[in-house]
Design a protein around this nucleic acid. Structure first.
Lengths: 236, 236
DNA sequence: ATCTAATATTTGTGATCACAATATTCTATC
DNA sequence: GATAGAATATTGTGATCACAAATATTAGAT
């Protein structure tokens, strides 16, 4: 049986800062690795195995795995095995549709709360995305892109939808990264710029369109990736 | 300070069946009590306190509370206190909008997968709702109503959206119950019947409309409840 | 050599303990 | 009497252990 331990410590490590609690560190670390696709679908994740690799007690790992299962990032089988779920074409399609549905709604709901400083902040983040893409820093680009979306939606103080959206991102796993990495720079800049322009004009419909297009561009770019089909049906 | 323990063991108890694991029992019990509104907003929930009331070790309670926090049913403050979140008018409104958005989508996506036996099953569940409402059994009516919606959406085997919807129900907490309890019987029957009729005719648009109307009816009925404003802003 | 049964290992869960951080209560001072 | 500070109690977290269930491995029989 192939396990994570036998597959080698292929985990991307995050350094644990002092003020950070262990459970948060483990959670963030596993979350990041799942989003990167570092942990292949089908490989069983065990509490003790991960605890040993990370050098912590099983307790924080237990907690993090439960939370990730709750968010849909990992799947708790009834054999009481925890694995990274397989991706299927249908599941991928449904996740993308839900992203568009929820993020367009979230953007529209955030619009009335957007102040000048929020727009300035979004422009700053967009610059960071731009720079990261230019430098080919996929990790940063993906991170800042998510930050752009989250910052926009979070302008609405009555927040229900952002956690739901983040759950979708988690379930999309490595695909959100792939989208960013393969995307021509101009696309991202365009869509984000369009969104910012719509914000300035208080143009609700334009904002929806910009966000929807941003997501669709990402999806379209994924389909151009060579050998992307290997990511489906669990073939790592 | 008013705590759960000092407030008395006002918890609605579920009996723990043998094949049920302790953590599931605790989770279901707390979940049910939150949906009933048995636990008032603002009251701090402590691991040890609940463990003592339930007669279990702190460990399953710790797990259940973390999961409920992840689902938005309880709120983990940074003081590391866990409380039932307050309901505000804006939050309530946003939750209802998201319910309509997601459930209409879910219904539409389920439609192509609906078989004859699914329709028969939905009709059976609807009868149960009907009976429960007739007998004034709010608990059963609420349960069967949720079952109706969940069964409909779950016909789609590529399920992403149902957990998101269930999270919304949890965050709406006691309100979903109130809606059922105060609703004139005829309304529910009508909307569910409309939905079933649309299913039979493979009428996607009609199905959306029926589901949306069903949810809106519930919301409308809530607003007629005497003293409903006490449920907002945390006044228990 | 292959299939089955028994053994051994691994795994998740639940319980208990230690500890640091937070909250609460008590006390001294003005 | 009110307020600030100290002492006390409570809480969540992390670690370790015991145990039952599930898996993996081995032994035996045909």
């Amino acid at each position: 049986m192939k396990t994570l331990k036998s597959a080698g410590p292929e985990l991307l490590m995050l350094e644990k800062t002092a003020e950070m609690k262990t459970n948060q560190w483990v959670y963030q670390l596993l979350r990041t690795n799942l989003l990167c696709g570092k942990i292949a679908p089908g490989i069983p994740l065990t509490i003790r195995g991960l605890a040993e690799v990370l050098g912590v007690s099983p307790m924080p790992v237990r907690e993090a795995l439960h939370r990730l299962a709750c968010e849909g990032a990992v799947e708790a089988k009834n054999n009481r095995r925890v694995i990274v779920p397989m991706m299927t074409a249908e599941k991928f399609s449904e996740l993308c549709e839900l992203r568009i549905l929820l993020e367009a709604h979230a953007a529209e709901k955030a619009l009335p709360f957007i102040r000048e400083q929020d727009i300035a902040n979004l422009e700053r983040i967009d610059t960071l995305v731009d720079q990261a893409v230019e430098q080919g820093d996929v990790e940063s680009a993906s991170l800042h892109n998510q930050d752009f979306h989250r910052s926009l939606y979070s302008a609405n103080p009555y927040q229900i939808v952002v956690p739901l959206i983040e759950s979708l991102w988690l379930q999309l796993g490595p695909f959100s990264r792939i989208a960013i990495s393969k995307l021509e720079k101009i696309y991202i800049v365009d869509r984000h710029a369009e969104a910012i322009e719509a914000l300035k004009q208080q143009n609700s419909f334009g904002l929806r369109r910009a966000i929807e297009a941003d997501i669709r561009d990402g999806i379209a770019s994924i389909k151009t990736v060579e050998g992307i089909h290997n990511y489906f049906q669990g073939v790592a």
